[in-house]
Design a protein around this nucleic acid. Sequence first.
RNA 1: UGGCCCAUGGUGUAAUUGGCAACACUCCGGUUUUUGGUACCGUCAUUCAAGGUUCGAGUCCUUGUGGGCCAACCA
Length: 560
Amino acid sequence: MSDDSKPLNFIEHIVEEDLANNFPKEHLRFRFPPEPNGYLHIGHASSISLNFGLGLRYNAPVNLRFDDTNPAKEEQEFVDAIKKDVTWLGYEWDTERYASDYFQQLYDWAIYLVKKGRAYVDDQSSEEMAAQKGTPTEPGTESPNRNRSVEENLALFNQMKNGEFKEGTHVLRAKIDMASSNMLMRDPIMYRVLHKAHHRTNTDWCIYPMYDWTHGESDYIEQVSHSFCTLEFAMHRELYDWFLDQVYDENKVRPKQREFARRNLSHTVVSKRKLAKLVETGVVSSWDDPRMPTISGLRRRGYTPESIRNFTETIGIAKRDNLIDVSLLEFQVRNHLNKVAPRVMGVLDPLKVVITNYPEGEEEWLDAENNPEDESAGSRKVPFSREFYIEKEDFREEANKKFFRLKLGKEVRLKNAYIIKAESCTKDTDGNIIEVQCTYDPKSKSGSGTEESLRKVKGTLHWVSIKHAVEAEVRLYDRLFTDESPDTHKDKDFMDFVNPDSLQVIKGYLEPHLKEAKIGDRVQFQRLGYFCVDPDSSSEKLVFNKTVGLRDSWAKIAEK
RNA sequence: UGGCCCAUGGUGUAAUUGGCAACACUCCGGUUUUUGGUACCGUCAUUCAAGGUUCGAGUCCUUGUGGGCCAACCA
């Protein structure tokens, strides 16, 4: 089911071309193949929506395959996290596969290659082999073990398998071409000895297949028609094809590897190794710290699956190097949250206001619209009283005409409430304003329909009645790195660019019904931004994360 | 010194495969607004350079220039 309303990316063009050349549509099959050695990040989101998107587009199955060939780095914890993230993003895989499911088949094929004289056991040190490998400009030299007899190779490989050798002493290599201009073709390693327990096969094996030997054959076993990976694997394609040639049966689908450019997001890093370092060094609290570009971090930050999917869709996929500005990502959350997040009022930097002509002890519950973008969201009641908070930055003793907020002698509308006028203010001994005294127009109540209520005043402020306010911890986030591309500097480490002020924890005062907010709830604090309830939150202590601010054109005017 | 890949506004992608350079974001300017939000309108590139083929080139060819990748018992 192809959707022609949108232009195709180059990957889709490849599939379309194959279809046009009579590749049977029902043989289309894709896969998303993460290594379970860390958490998924925003870069993976692109690969996920590419592969699963293709599945949806052509109604073809997509496997979730764990590339688990290195027990030294992989853990069940990561398998679970990856499954959770893919599901959360809204995709369904056809079958859950593991490269480790194919260890026996891979081993049998390896024996077959040995028998064909296409693979041999090498017992040199890695240093020796590296020296023989040559350089990109000079051909390598052949290993003295390259021409062992089949019998000897079989025997040695069997000993490797049976655990008779120590790690690092023996490998199985493909016999290809030590003079190839492609370094990967210079007799690459297929198996190494690793006396480590695997998270799924435990100690069944002590030899483990390398990526190149595993990946293409796994695609072949699963009959994946198109195997998409990132550009750094482009050189691997020749090897991928060579390994396939060894076992390929004409009657089966032959997987095709093609490469696309990894997506780079500005002001962050997307490499598991670097993300792991941020966690290990305590720069962030965990893999799901809301500042992390991981899927779990974005989830905790308040991002929606829709916004991430829309992001990957709009940035597309291509082959050139890129540095995607975070503003493209932020736009997508704002865009989605604008439609679905209930509006509430919260004051994060409080300044007390007293309405001198409002009866002491009185309170009234005013109607407040939950979402102007969505009438079905209904309304709620918000308590109003003589004393309330506004944001400090919303009051100035005096200011120019561009300042639409509260200033002495001028009027402003309190959202969903009354028009008030600032009469005077009091300061502490340091000269800081600590309270503003106002009068209000009792006939100006929002929604009352009176002439006064319809008066236009330039500014509208959010507020929270002090007596009714609920307190909450609010965590504000800034970009994790001060540089837009922290890991591309040859002379500096990415850790040098860590933003020391990426987290700010403050106390906020919220309208009372937020006491009922549940973990994961997303709201808009009007005029401030989108926030969500953090998992650290409890009935005793509310904790909110700031997802993203609203567009703020006042900030730009104020700068001038 | 070898091989492979890439080059379109500030950012990311398109361009019916040789036929008027489009979309989204950002920026700037404006309209609407009981969120300085949203929505809406408008401004912002002749496609890295130089040649060539062609009636016609972002698209094909050549040569440059610039960038990325390749020598882990990682994936």
